[in-house]
Amino acid sequence: MLLFFNKIFCVKCSGLIRYRVSCKRNIAYSSKPFSSRTAPWRILFYGSDDFSEASLKILYEELRTGIVSRLDVVTSLNSKRNPVRSFAMQHKLAIYGWPYSTIEEEYDVGVVVSFGHLIPERDIASFPLGMLNVHASLLPRWRGAAPIIHALMHGDAVTGVSIMRIKPNKFDIGDIVKQESCHIHRDETLPQLYGRLAALGAKVLVECLHDLPHCLTKAVPQPHGNSTYAPKVQPAVARVRWRDMTCQQVYNLHRAVASIHPLTTSWHGLPVRLHHASPSTDCAAGERPGCVQYVPSSNVLRVACADQLFIHFQAVGLPNKKPLTAAEFHNGYLSKKKHSDRIFD
C-alpha cells in the first residue's frame, strides 16, 4: 500500500482545508457475494440540493440508530446555497469536495441523490456493493435532470421514485433495484410534488438498505423501447403558445414551472408574466387564441386557448412594475384597446 495525502473539508476547522494521511488500495469489484454482506453499511453520499437533503437526513438518523455505521458526503464546496453541505457541517460529517477523484477510505456502497454529475467508472468499482441512485420518476420514463417538471408539464397522473444501480458513462440507465409509485394530484405544483417525492425517495432508499443484498440480487434491467427524457428546463419553456396549447396544457405548464419560471407572453410588444393560473370550463368559441378578457365578478383575466376554452389568471407582471391585479391590468391597459386588439401573443 502507498501512503499519500488527500484534501478533505474539515468541519472542525471552521471550513478550512486540511490534510490527512490515508492508505490507497487497489480498486476492483469485490468477489464477495451480496448475500454474505451484512449491515450496518459504510456509505459515501453524493448530493447537493433539497431533494438530496431528504435522503441524507434519513441516512443520518440511521447512522445514529440503525443500519448505517459510517456516513461521509461528497458535494460542491463552491455553490452559494447547498443544503447538503450545510447539513453535513451542522452534524459534523466528513465532506469531500467535488470533483472527488480518488476514494481512499473503505465504504460498502455509494448513494447518489440528485447530484447531476457522472461518477467515474473507477469510483463506481471501488464500492463492493456498487452505487445506488434515487431518481424521481418511474424509470425508464423521464430519464434526465428534470423528471418532476416534465411529469407535471405532460400531465402525468402517476409518478414515483426509482432506486437503481449506477452504471458508468450515462445517466439513469442502470438496473432497477426498487420502485414505488404515487398519484399526482390534479392541482399539484412543482414544490408540492418535489417535497413528496423527496420524502418518498428517502423512505424507499432506507427500505433498500435494510434488505440490500436481497434487493441487489433482484435488480432488473430497465425495459427497452419506452424511455422518455427530461432535460434541464430553460426559461424559454415558460412562454405560452396560445395557438398551439390547450387550456389544460397551459395549466400543466404553470404547475410545472411557475415556481422557477413564471409563464410569459407579450402584450403589444411588452413582455408579460402570468401569475396564479387556474383552468376553467368557460367556452371561448369564436375567440382568437390569446384573446384576453376581464371578468369583474371574479376579478380575473381569462385568456382563450387553442381548444376554445379560457384559462384564468389573477395577476400579471410587467417590466419594472409590481404585479398588477386583473382589475389593475384592465383599467391601465386592457380597457384602452378595442376588442380585436386585446390579444396576448
Rank of each mutant, 00 (worst) to 15 (best):
A151R: 02
A151L: 07
A151S: 15
A151D: 03
A151V: 10
L152E: 05
L152I: 12
M153L: 15
M153K: 13
M153G: 07
M153W: 15
H154R: 15
H154K: 14
H154P: 02
H154D: 11
H154Y: 15
G155Y: 11
D156H: 15
D156G: 05
D156K: 12
A157M: 12
A157Y: 12
V158G: 02
T159F: 04
V161T: 02
V161F: 07
V161E: 09
V161G: 02
S162N: 06
S162Q: 06
I163S: 02
I163F: 05
I163L: 11
R165G: 00
R165L: 15
I166N: 00
I166F: 05
I166G: 01
P168W: 13
P168E: 13
P168A: 12
P168R: 13
P168N: 13
N169P: 00
N169S: 14
F171H: 09
D172I: 04
I173K: 07
I173R: 08
I173T: 11
I173E: 10
G174K: 08
D175H: 09
I176M: 06
I176T: 11
V177A: 08
K178N: 04
Q179H: 06
Q179M: 10
Q179S: 08
E180V: 07
E180W: 04
E180P: 00
E180S: 13
S181G: 09
S181L: 09
C182K: 09
C182P: 01
C182Q: 13
H183T: 13
I184T: 03
I184V: 12
I184K: 06
I184C: 07
H185G: 11
H185Y: 15
R186M: 08
R186W: 14
R186H: 14
R186T: 15
R186G: 07
D187V: 07
D187Q: 13
D187F: 14
D187N: 12
E188Y: 11
E188P: 03
T189P: 04
T189V: 12
L190P: 02
P191S: 08
Q192S: 14
L193I: 10
L193Q: 09
Y194R: 14
Y194V: 01
Y194M: 08
G195N: 12
R196I: 04
L197A: 09
L197P: 01
A198G: 11
A198T: 04
A198L: 03
L200D: 06
L200I: 08
L200V: 06
G201V: 05
G201R: 04
A202Q: 01
A202V: 06
A202H: 02
K203F: 07
K203Q: 10
K203T: 10
V204F: 05
L205K: 03
V206T: 04
V206W: 07
E207Y: 01
E207W: 03
E207Q: 15
C208F: 01
C208R: 06
L209V: 03
L209Y: 08
H210P: 00
P213E: 10
H214M: 08
C215S: 14
L216V: 07
L216S: 01
L216I: 04
L216N: 01
L216M: 09
L216K: 02
